[in-house]
Design a protein around this nucleic acid. Sequence first.
DNA 1: GCCAACGTTGGC
DNA 2: GCCAACGTTGGC
Length: 156
Amino acid sequence: MNTWLMKSEPDVFSIDDLKRAKTTGWEGVRNYQARNFMRDEMKPGDLVLFYHSNAEPSGVAGVAKVAGPPIPDPTQFDKKSEYYDASSKPVAPTWLMVTVSFVEAFDAVVPLATLKAEKALAGMALLQKGQRLSVQPVSRAHFAKVLSLAKANTKV
DNA sequence: GCCAACGTTGGC
DNA sequence: GCCAACGTTGGC
């Protein structure tokens, strides 16, 4: 099993939205590196840190898991979608996505500042300057550390 | 709202 | 193939 981090703007789709939906297709990724991770490396059962970007505060909000194999992102063929891609043909879809399902929502978001302050997380891709990748691998050790920070953060 | 960092596009 | 211009991401 591999572990991952996926970013979403909570104004668009938050961990609570995933809790309600239970499962969702990870639509709208239009970055080749992120797509390649979903297409080639994510496997059902892999665990995912659900990250809120452009949020107050930004940070890890919960955990999801990969629910199914990569499938074509339907929004690329939907002319009404902001993610419509006229250059992508149904016989050879450019954009694949995985589906993810809800695992847990933390009692409180683990803020980016907390992650940055944690020496054990120094190597995390998320924390590298200028990185904007919305789907990225996370080491098992980093994943476990973020979970422990979330538990330490639990309101009693 | 600002702006640094990055990815993509398109002229040449 | 180079690279300037542009659009986007995302923290602050």
